[in-house]
Amino acid sequence: MQVTWGNVTVTFSNPEEAKKYAEKVARKLGGQVELHNGQFRIK
C-alpha cells in the first residue's frame, strides 16, 4: 500500500501502518487523506 503526496511516495507492506502514517503526514501538512485506487493520497 502506498502513501503519496506531492512527488513523494512511501510504500508499506502493512495497510494499517500506511493509514497511520498517512494520517500523521496529513496532520502535519494540514491536508486530507483520500483512499484512491489502493493508495492513500494527501491533498
Rank of each mutant, 00 (worst) to 15 (best):
V8S: 06
G31R: 04
V25W: 11
T11M: 10
G30S: 05
T11F: 14
A18D: 00
E17N: 10
W5V: 11
K43E: 09
A22G: 02
V10G: 01
T9W: 05
T4V: 15
W5F: 09
P15M: 15
R27V: 10
T11Q: 10
T4I: 14
E34N: 04
Y21N: 01
F12T: 00
G38R: 05
Q39N: 12
F12C: 05
G31F: 06
L29R: 04
W5M: 05
E16D: 13
T4Y: 06
W5T: 03
L29S: 07
G31I: 05
K19M: 10
V10Y: 12
I42G: 01
E16G: 10
K43H: 13
V10D: 01
F12G: 00
V8Y: 13
V33L: 06
Y21R: 01
V25Y: 03
Q2R: 10
V8A: 05
E23G: 05
E16P: 03
A26L: 04
M1A: 10
G30C: 10
P15D: 06
R41K: 11
F12H: 02
E16T: 12
T11R: 11
E23A: 07
L29A: 05
T11K: 09
A18T: 02
R41T: 15
F40I: 09
V33I: 10
P15R: 14
T4H: 09
E23T: 07
T9H: 05
W5K: 01
Q2I: 12
E17H: 12
Y21S: 01
K28Q: 12
N37A: 07
L35T: 07
A22P: 00
G30F: 05
A26M: 03
Q32H: 14
T4S: 13
V8K: 11
G38C: 09
T9Y: 05
G30T: 03
L29K: 04
V8D: 04
E34P: 00
E23Y: 14
G31Q: 05
Q39C: 08
A18Y: 02
K43P: 06
E34R: 04
E17D: 14
P15N: 08
I42Y: 02
I42F: 02
R41C: 08
Q39W: 04
F12A: 01
T11P: 05
K28T: 09
N14I: 06
W5N: 03
H36F: 12
V33G: 00
A26G: 04
H36C: 14
V3P: 00
A22S: 03
V25K: 04
V25A: 04
G38W: 03
Q39K: 08
G30K: 08
N37V: 03
E34L: 07
M1C: 11
P15W: 15
E16V: 13
K19R: 15
K43D: 07
L35F: 15
N37W: 03
E34I: 13
Y21T: 02
F12E: 00
G31A: 10
L35W: 10
V33W: 06
K19D: 02
E17P: 03
N7G: 09
V8R: 09
V10S: 03
R27H: 12
H36E: 13
Q2L: 09
G30I: 03
V25F: 04
E23I: 10
V25E: 03
T11I: 13
N14K: 08
A26C: 05
G30D: 05
V8M: 12
Q2H: 08
G30Y: 05
E16Y: 12
A18W: 02
W5P: 00
K28V: 13
R27S: 11
V33C: 05
Q2N: 09
K19Y: 14
N14F: 06
Q32Y: 15
Q32V: 15
M1D: 04
K24A: 15
